[in-house]
Structure formats: structure tokens, C-alpha cells
Design a protein around this nucleic acid. Structure first.
Length: 1033
RNA sequence: GGGCGUUUGGCUCAGUUGGUUAGAGCACCUCGUUUACACCGAGGGGGUCGGGGGUUCGAGUCCCUCAACGCCCA
């Protein structure tokens, strides 16, 4: 017998085991079936999953389960991402915190081992989370971006791009994380505004001519960088530059309101003043630059040129700008334009190097202080202003990023990016919602070369061996020898003129790229004097290959042939550029085919304060906590129903008090607390931040969201409806269902099932998960439970109707379970099992049910079952039910009492409603004494008109009359009617409306006004009667 | 500075191509424990749709503008 509650805590595990035993999740190459493939966006192994991942994976599972039921060979390929820098950073940080060791203390091998241990631990946890959520991945095909299969794909791709000359090495200014000692991409840098200073310096002019200034003033927020200056720039045409600024301001003023004019005017005035004061000086400097005047760089005692460059802004500061090409992105561009030397001041750890011996070994803050002091001592320091400065911080280590000149490997993006843009432009890849196409195309359109080196130890090591030779012929010889070792199919070489830190020619680099991992050629290459590049590749390089590397590429596997291109990629918008775009271009490069047909971008989950969920903020919710409290189906349904087309959804987060289970809203304040006192039971609980013994002594609160409570209730509702059905199926005998002979309520159910099936099927196809959830919720609760089950009760008690009713209701439940299964796999599977025990054969033409709903066929909407007339008729019935209930309620008629009811309606409605008499009794406790055009009100009458369906409902209040209550009800009604009538009259007396609105709209208004007036007359009369009654008493 | 998005009852969200009285869940109020379900049932109160302007016979829905918030990119 079916238990009274769905015990997900024990049943979910058993169900998963049964699915696993039967291999329900597995997909095979089956040419007779159409494949449907999803590759999971591999969660990174840095940490556990939160609800954002929960949403992402729930939606994928809904898709894959639906397609599986629809007869596709559905493969959901799981895996995780090594997330190079993120994971290494976490492990390094722990190493520092717990053992006070750096990675250099323990060495490359030991660190990598520790990261693998971390990976094993978190991968296990992540997979456990996915499994408990019910994700039906083919676990046999689990991949990891750093495993051998993916590694082979990385090597093959790198080799191919290298051969095509799409990979090159160059010195570039990179964002250097001095803590992790690696370059990080722009995407891993966040800018914060901090208080700082703006220092003014004076650089002496060497041998100024008469009339020329002896000093040039510059200003900087980073004084220590002056040691690496290689020029000072002035604008080549300061007059024109100032004119342009003024013109822009005037243009801006035109579009502003008058009150903002003053502000702009002030700027214009300042500009004019500046023009008169500074322009001659700037022009003088410009001429000095043209004349080749040099400056003496203080402290470093180096001669540097005065140059002209548009980067110098005449409207700012002194109009002159120092140029430090190796340590500032803008200066780097100037340096390239002006062919300036680039002096790298820093060691990899952020201390100053031997370029400036006097400062060698100092950290940046120390050097900054020292430089300022030294300049002051030299009398070259000017004003020091307070100023807010933008400081770039590394996302990973939270330390300051230094622009740093380093050798990096790049992927040339021009052709690759174009191919990925074309694929979206011509709809080979469709992005939903479509608004995300723009960002994708814009980003790729910049075609910025992709720096792929990371100075890390965790990742795919760059498969390049290098040596530098003084002569070109020597380099060529070595390259030829290297190629000869394995042939051009597995060895590719390149020779490039080398440059030192200052951009001076320094011989010839030989680069040798090996195609295969663990190649026996490695020692032979090294024997030629080449050394392997110590760096690893950007994680996204391997992620970009995910849709094909996981299927075995570069091997031409049968899986690759069958399952590629994959069908749908389901991900969040923050990685459209970083990941989606790169998958497209890599798929096209490696296979000549796009990696997927569709990309679905789902919303981001924010907490109740509108902030993105994250473990580090403390507002991350672990899906497991939600599953423990509400069950896996509730988690999934709750997530599916918030998956609208918007870009963010809010999910308020709460602590669940471990003492009294009260949910306490999470606030910015309490979410970082180590302990919280429950406002309910006044006892204290601990949080994820608790560390010391005193805090951890308190039990820890789970972090959940009450959003899932509704879903839990829905699961319970479904369970109980099923329980009702099952309790009435003991003597079930299957029999064919002849639709034409069925009563209205059955045909209504079939009609609704047809409609709902169609809506759900189409909705999932279009990724409208929230709509689908709502349709199913409303149908299951408000139609199947509230009406069909209620109507079935008297029919099941009637022997003549029992058997057929059992067949119809079993079929209805069967269909509902299938439709709900992709969203709520566990509870539907459980009920399916019980249903199978009592009604093994079911359906319109009874057939044996499949052993699992998971492997059952998806329902097909039967268009012939859809019957507009039946649905409209049933709606009339529902309206009448509502009317009777409203009157009962307003009259305070006790629920147990039966009330005589008369229903005045058209002959056609009479035909419909007559057979429903029993159900009025069952649903409203009404004794329908009259029904039809001649039905009359009672002497002690409570009427309610339903003009939209031309029905009047009358209740006999003889036994229950409460004149005051009735008068109150009617007067309120009258009030509403009057308001509506006034509105309509105003509308219809508007000549414009009558003349210009479409005739049918006007006609409608006239019709409904007439009805309202008639209704008002009735109500007024009733009020009159009641008042009479009151006065006569 | 640019792009995208959001702003509808106390909370979280729906609202198709502009057209009768703007919906749902939660919360709230009243009544109810009739064997599917109190994780329930019946009924009810509550919003004029961020501000301003415009188009239109008619706007939550279209246009302009301002503001706030979120995310992304400079």
C-alpha cells in the first residue's frame, strides 16, 4: 500500500539505484535512432555546487529526460573542469594559511599532487550533488578537462594551430598577479576604487636652449614606475587638441538641462584659462621634442627623449605624460608607436629587479615610498594630491595586479573569431534568448588575440620546447634535426628572432611543438638542447574543446560521429564569450562543424538582496541542504518555475534554525556571522564561518530558501491525489475507453490533457521552463485534483460507473506522471511503481506500462480529444460552482448543511448542467431543485447572476437567512456594479471611442453595459425586498 | 563611458499581437478537521503597474525622458 507521505529521504536513493541497475541513463551509438546530446558545462572543481549550478543542471536534465522519453538516443555527458588558476589559488591559499608554505617551498610535483587530491575530493562531492538532484548523466562517460582523453585533444589542437601559424609567442604587457606569479586574463581582474595620491615630479631638461624651461613636470599615481620611464610625451598639436575638447563640451552642453549648464560652463572657463596660460608652454615643449631635446630621468640617471604623442592630454595636469611602456597598458601602446625601449622593473614576485640596483629587492610599496623620498631629497618633488585611484585586483588572489611585460603564447583570433561569428550570424548556432547574440558578436568582433599562457603548475603544460641561438643558421639546423626526429606530422618547428627585455635583438629562438602526449621524442628534443616551456595553458583552452574532446576527438570514434554536433548547450550568460564563443571556433577549426545547434542561456540566481550567490559571500545555497529539507523534486520544481526569460531571478536565502526549524532571513550582516541567535527559540546556532570551538559547539544551520516550500506542497498534493486514485483501484480491470460515449467530465479531462500535453511539449522545446511548470501545477492542482478527483468520488461509489471511471482516472494520472517526470523524476517514478502494481495495463487502448516512467513514451497530444465546446461547458459548471460557494460563504451557511438551489439558464446549458447535479452536491453541498429556463428564485432568495454565461443562481435561504449579511453582500455588489456602469457609460458617451474603435469592440461594450444594467435592476429589487422584510419584522 | 536587463499588491514573480473588473504562489483575515491531502479545503481583503512626458478612441503593454538597482564590457 502506498504510504501516506512520499519518503524521499529513503526512496530517492532506491530509485536512483534501480535506474542505474537498468542502465536508464546510458546512451549508446544506435544508428536506428536519432541522437540528442548535451555536454554538461563542466563545473569547476574549485568548490561545491550552489543553486546556480542546481538550476543549470536541472534544466539540462529536464531536456534530456524529455528527449529520452520522446525516443531520442539521449546522451548527457558529464564531467568537471580543472579551472587552472582558480583551483591552484585555493590550494595555495590553504597551504599558506594552514602550513605557512608557498608553492615554491614544496615544489611543482608536490603542489600538483595536492591539487589532484583537492580535485578528487571536490569532484566526488560535485558528482554526489548532481546524482542526488537526479541528473541522468551517462556516468560511464565521465570526463575531466585534465584527463588523458581531453589532454590528447588539447595537444592535437595546439599542434594544429601552431602548424597553421595561429599560435605565436610575443612579449606582451599582461596582468601580472604577483602573489600567484602568473598572468591572468582581463576577465580575471576586477577594478576597485581606492584612496591614493597623485604625485607631481620635475624632470630636468638636458641643455635647454635659451627661453626653454629647465624642467618638465609630470604626474603619476604610481611613483615607482618612473624608474622604468623611457620617454616623456607632449601632444603634437596642443591647440587642436584643446579646441576639440572645447567643442565636445559645447556639444554636450546642448543636450543638457539649463541647471547643468553652469557645470559645463565652469569647465569651459577653466579650459579657456588654461589655453591662455599653458598653450605657449606646450607648444614650446612640442618644438623641443621635435628638436630632439632629452631629459635626465632622476634617480635612474638615464637620458630619455621628449616625444610627441597623442596620448599626452593638454587639458590635464601639466600636459606632459611620463611613458613607462613595460608597466602601463597605454604607455605600452605609446612605446610601440614611438619605438621606445621597454624596461621591465619587476621580478615575478613583484619586487624590483636589478635594472635599478639602488631599489633592487624592494616591494612595490617600499619602492614607492623610497622613490618619493629620494625625489624630495633631490628637490624634484612637486605637489602631492589626494585622489581616488582605480586599482586592478586579481579575482583569484585579491592582490594588486601589476602590468608586466612577459613572454606569452597567443592564439591569433582573426580567422577563428570570424568563423565563430559567421556560425551565429547564419543561424547554424542559435542563441536563446536572442538578445545574447549581440554580446557574443561584439566580443568576437574585437578579434583580440587570445593569450593562452598561464604561469601555473596546474593545467595542460604547453607542448613547446625552446632554445635560443646566436646565429640563424644554427637555429635552422636544430629545427631541421628536431623535425627529422618524428617527421612534420608530429613535430612542428618555428624560428623567431628573439628580443631581450629592452626589445633589443638577442639571437634566434627555436620553438618545437610535439603533437603527442608522453611522446618518446621528448628526451631526444631535450638532447638537442631545447627546454620545455614551464607554463600551462589557460583553462578555457581545454574547455573550448569540450563538446568534441569528450567524445574522443582526435580519434575518429563512433561516438564522435554519432553524437557530434551536440544538440543543446545550456549555460549562464557570464561565460558566453569566454566559453561558448571559444567552443564554436574550436569546433569549427577541429571538425569543420559547429559544436551545438542551440545555446540556451538561463537566468542567474541572486539572493534576496539582489546579489549573486557565492560561497565566499556566504549567501550560496547548497542544493543538498534544500534536498534534505524539501526533497529533490521540490528543489527541481522550484528551480524550473523560476526559469523565466529574464536575466536574473531573486531567491531569498534563509538560515534554518537547527533547534526549532524556523527560517531566519539572511541579511548582509548575519550572513558573515559565525553564530546567530534564533529569534524564535532564542537558541544559538553556528554558520559556515564558525571556526573556534566555542562557535562550532552550536549546531550548524542549513542555508535554504523558503521558495521551495510551495514546490514541496505540490509534490505532496500530487502524491495524495495519486494515493486517492490508488486507493480506488484495488478492483481495477483494464478496458478500452470509448471517448464518444464518455460523460462530459471525462471528455473534459481528455480535452485538457490534450491541451496540456501540447503546451508542455512545445514549452520545453522553447526552453519556457517557468511556463511549463505553471501549466502543470495549475492543471494538476486546480483541474485534476480540485475537479476531476472530486467528481470521481461519487462516480467511483456508483457501481455502474466505477469501472470506466477507474480506467479514465488511471489514464489521467498516467499522463500527468509522464508530463511531470522530467521536472520531478523521483515522486513520479515512485507513484508509477505503485500504479503499475494495481493497473499494469492502462490507457485508451490498454497496454502494458513500461517498468519505469523514466523510460516510458512521452505523451502525444491527441488533437481529436481537444474539444472547445466541452471545455466551455465545463467552465460554465465551474462558474456555477463558484457562485454557489460564494453565496454560501457570504451567508455563513455551515458546510455540512445542504442548501436548495435553483439554476436559471438557457436550454443548452440545461442539457449540460442537468447530468452534473450530483456533482453540485459533491462539490458545494447543493440540492439542485430546479434547472432550466423556467427555474425561479425562492421566497427567501439569495441570487447571483453570471451574465457572461447567461445564468442566474438562486439559493433558498429559508433555513439560514441572515438578512444583515445578505444586505451587506448585495449592497457591496450594487456598489461594484455602479462603478462599472459609470465607467462603461463614460466610455460609450465618448464620441471618439464610438467613432474610432473597431465596431466589435464598441458592440461588446454596449452588450456588457446592458447586462450590467439589468443585473443592477435585479439587485436593487432584491435589496428592496429584503429591506421590506426587515421593516415588516 | 558603452551594452544588456530589471522596477506590477508585504515578499517572489506572470502579464502573448495595446481593448471587458491587472493574475499566481507565499504572507494576511474569516470559516472548516466530510476517510487523497491542514505540506489541506472554501471564501475574503490588499496593487493603478518606479517618476514625468508623448502616441492612441483606449497603454502595465508602444515612443521619449529621468531615477534607482543588477550584470557585463571599457
Amino acid at each position: 500500500m502506498i504510504p501516506i507521505r512520499f519518503d524521499y529521504a529513503t526512496e530517492a536513493g532506491e530509485i536512483v539505484a534501480k535506474w542505474d541497475d537498468a542502465g536508464c541513463n546510458n546512451a549508446e551509438v544506435r544508428p536506428d535512432k536519432k541522437p540528442y546530446t548535451i555536454v554538461i558545462p563542466p563545473p569547476n572543481v574549485t568548490g561545491a555546487l550552489h543553486l546556480g549550478h542546481g538550476l543549470n543542471n536541472t534544466l539540462q536534465d529536464i531536456l534530456i529526460r524529455t528527449k529520452r522519453m520522446q525516443g531520442f538516443e539521449a546522451l548527457w555527458l558529464p564531467g568537471t573542469d580543472h579551472a587552472g588558476i582558480a583551483t591552484q589559488a585555493v590550494v595555495e591559499r590553504r597551504l599558506k594559511e594552514q602550513e605557512n608554505l608557498s608553492r615554491h617551498d614544496i615544489g611543482r610535483e608536490a603542489l600538483v599532487q595536492r591539487i589532484w587530491d583537492w580535485k578528487d575530493q571536490y569532484e566526488k562531492r560535485i558528482l554526489g550533488q548532481l546524482k542526488r538532484m537526479g541528473c541522468s548523466c551517462d556516468w560511464r562517460r565521465l570526463r575531466f578537462t585534465l584527463d588523458e582523453t581531453c589532454g590528447a585533444a588539447v595537444r592535437a589542437t595546439f599542434f594544429d594551430l601552431f602548424q597553421k601559424d595561429l599560435i605565436y609567442r610575443g612579449k606582451r604587457l599582461v596582468n601580472w598577479d604577483t602573489f600567484l606569479q602568473t598572468a591572468v586574463s582581463n576577465d580575471e581582474v576586477e577594478n576597485v576604487t581606492k584612496k591614493g595620491h597623485f604625485y607631481h615630479f620635475r624632470y630636468p631638461v638636458i641643455d635647454p636652449k635659451p627661453g626653454e624651461p629647465e624642467f618638465v613636470e609630470i604626474a603619476t599615481t604610481r611613483p615607482e614606475t618612473m624608474l622604468g620611464d623611457t620617454a616623456v610625451a607632449v601632444h603634437p598639436d596642443p591647440t587642436a587638441a584643446l579646441d576639440k575638447v572645447a567643442a565636445d563640451l559645447i556639444e554636450k552642453r546642448r543636450s543638457l538641462s539649463t541647471k547643468e549648464h553652469a557645470d559645463v560652463q565652469a569647465q569651459l572657463d577653466a579650459l579657456a584659462k588654461r589655453r591662455s596660460e599653458m598653450l605657449p608652454k606646450l607648444e614650446k615643449l612640442r618644438d623641443m621634442a621635435a628638436d630632439g631635446r632629452k631629459l635626465m630621468l632622476p634617480l635612474a640617471n638615464r637620458e630619455i627623449p621628449l616625444v610627441t604623442d597623442v596620448w599626452a592630454k593638454p587639458e590635464l595636469g601639466s600636459g606632459c605624460v611620463k611613458i613607462t611602456p613595460a608597466h602601463d597598458p597605454n604607455d605600452y601602446e605609446v612605446g610601440k608607436r614611438q619605438s621606445l625601449p621597454m624596461i621591465n622593473l619587476l621580478n615575478a614576485d613583484g619586487t624590483l629587479n636589478a635594472t635599478v640596483p639602488a631599489y633592487q629587492g624592494l616591494t612595490i610599496p617600499q619602492a614607492r615610498k623610497q622613490v618619493v623620498e629620494d625625489l624630495e631629497a633631490a628637490g624634484l618633488l612637486g605637489d602631492v594630491e589626494d585622489r581616488d585611484i582605480e586599482m586592478p585586483l586579481s579575482d583569484r588572489s585579491k592582490t594588486a595586479i601589476e602590468p608586466y611585460l612577459a613572454d606569452q603564447w597567443f592564439v591569433a583570433m582573426d580567422q577563428l573569431a570570424q568563423s565563430a561569428m559567421d556560425a551565429v550570424s547564419d543561424q547554424r548556432v542559435k542563441i536563446f534568448p536572442t538578445r545574447y547574440r549581440k554580446g557574443y558578436l561584439d566580443w568576437l568582433g574585437e578579434k583580440r588575440d587570445w593569450p593562452v599562457s598561464r604561469q601555473l603548475w596546474w593545467g595542460h603544460r604547453i607542448p613547446i620546447w625552446t632554445a635560443t641561438f646566436t646565429s640563424q643558421s644554427e637555429a635552422e639546423q636544430v629545427a631541421e634535426k628536431a623535425t627529422a626526429l618524428g617527421g612534420p606530422d608530429v613535430v612542428s618547428t618555428k624560428i623567431q628572432a628573439a628580443g631581450d627585455d629592452e626589445g633589443q635583438a638577442a639571437g634566434f629562438d627555436v620553438f618545437v611543438c610535439l603533437r603527442d602526449e608522453e611522446s618518446p621524442l621528448e628526451p631526444q628534443i631535450e638532447a638537442l638542447g631545447l627546454q620545455r616551456d614551464p607554463d600551462v595553458l589557460d583553462t578555457w583552452f581545454s574547455s573550448a574543446l569540450w563538446p568534441h574532446s569528450t567524445l574522443g576527438w582526435p580519434q575518429q570514434t563512433k561516438e564522435l560521429e554519432y553524437f557530434y554536433p551536440t544538440s543543446t548547450l545550456c549555460t549562464s550568460r557570464d561565460i558566453i564569450t569566454l566559453w561558448v564563443a571559444r567552443m564554436v571556433l574550436m569546433g569549427l577549426n577541429n571538425l569543420g562543424e559547429v559544436p551545438f545547434d542551440e545555446v540556451f542561456i538561463h537566468p542567474t540566481i541572486l539572493d534576496g538582496n539582489g546579489e549573486r550567490m557565492s560561497k565566499s559571500k556566504g549567501n550560496g545555497v547548497d542544493p543538498i541542504d534544500v534536498i534534505d529539507k524539501f526533497g529533490p523534486d521540490s528543489l527541481r520544481f522550484g528551480l524550473a518555475r523560476i526559469a523565466t526569460e529574464t536575466q536574473d531571478v531573486r531567491l531569498p536565502v534563509q538560515y534554518e534554525c537547527p533547534h526549532c526549524e524556523k527560517l531566519i532571513d539572511q541579511t548582509k550582516k548575519n550572513r558573515t556571522a559565525t553564530t546567530v541567535k534564533c529569534p524564535g527559540c532564542k537558541k544559538t546556532f553556528s554558520t559556515q564561518w564558525a571556526e573556534n570551538a566555542a562557535d562550532t559547539a552550536h549546531p550548524k544551520a542549513a542555508v535554504v530558501s523558503e521558495k521551495f516550500e510551495t514546490s514541496r506542497n505540490f509534490v505532496n498534493k500530487l502524491w495524495n491525489a495519486a494515493r486517492f486514485v490508488l486507493m480506488n483501484l484495488e478492483d481495477y480491470q483494464s478496458q478500452p475507453i470509448d471517448v464518444a460515449s464518455l460523460p462530459v467530465e471525462d471528455r473534459w479531462l481528455l480535452s485538457r490533457l490534450a491541451t496540456v500535453t501540447e503546451q508542455v511539449t512545445a514549452g520545453i522545446e522553447q526552453f519556457k521552463f517557468a511556463d511549463v511548470s505553471k501549466v502543470l501545477y495549475d492543471f494538476a492542482w486546480n483541474e485534476f485534483c480540485s475537479f476531476y478527483v472530486e467528481i470521481a468520488k461519487p462516480r467511483l461509489a456508483d457501481e455502474s460507473q466505477r469501472a470506466m471511471t477507474q480506467n479514465v482516472i488511471a489514464h489521467g494520472l498516467d499522463t500527468l506522471l509522464r508530463l511531470l517526470h522530467p521536472i520531478m523524476p523521483f515522486v513520479t517514478e515512485s507513484i508509477w511503481g505503485y500504479l503499475g502494481q494495481l493497473a499494469a495495463e492502462r490507457g485508451l487502448e490498454p497496454t502494458a506500462a513500461s517498468p519505469f516512467v523514466m523510460t516510458a513514451d512521452w505523451p502525444t497530444a491527441v488533437p481529436e480529444h481537444h474539444d472547445e465546446t466541452i471545455e466551455r461547458q465545463f467552465a460554465e459548471f465551474q462558474e456555477v460552482v463558484g457562485a454557489i460557494r460564494r453565496i454560501r460563504s457570504s451567508q455563513n451557511i455551515p458546510p455540512r448543511e445542504t442548501v436548495p438551489v435553483a439554476i436559471r439558464c438557457s436550454p443548452s446549458s440545461q442539457t449540460l448542467l442537468d447530468p452534473m447535479k450530483t456533482y453540485f452536491e459533491a462539490l458545494t453541498g447543493a440540492d439542485v431543485v430546479a434547472i432550466g429556463p423556467d427555474a425561479q428564485g425562492f421566497a427567501t432568495d439569495a441570487p447571483l447572476a453570471l451574465p457572461s454565461i447567461d445564468v442566474e443562481v438562486h439559493l433558498d435561504l429559508e433555513k439560514f437567512i441572515d438578512v444583515e449579511a445578505e444586505l451587506a453582500r448585495l449592497e457591496k455588489l450594487l456598489d461594484q456594479l455602479n462603478k462599472q456602469i459609470t465607467g462603461k457609460e463614460a466610455k460609450l458617451s465618448n464620441e471618439n471611442f464610438v467613432a474610432r474603435a473597431p465596431a466589435d469592440v464598441v458592440e461588446n461594450e454596449r452588450g456588457s453595459l446592458a447586462e450590467l444594467v439589468q443585473q443592477r435592476d435585479t439587485v436593487t429589487a432584491d435589496i428592496g425586498k429584503l429591506k421590506e422584510k426587515v421593516s415588516s419584522n
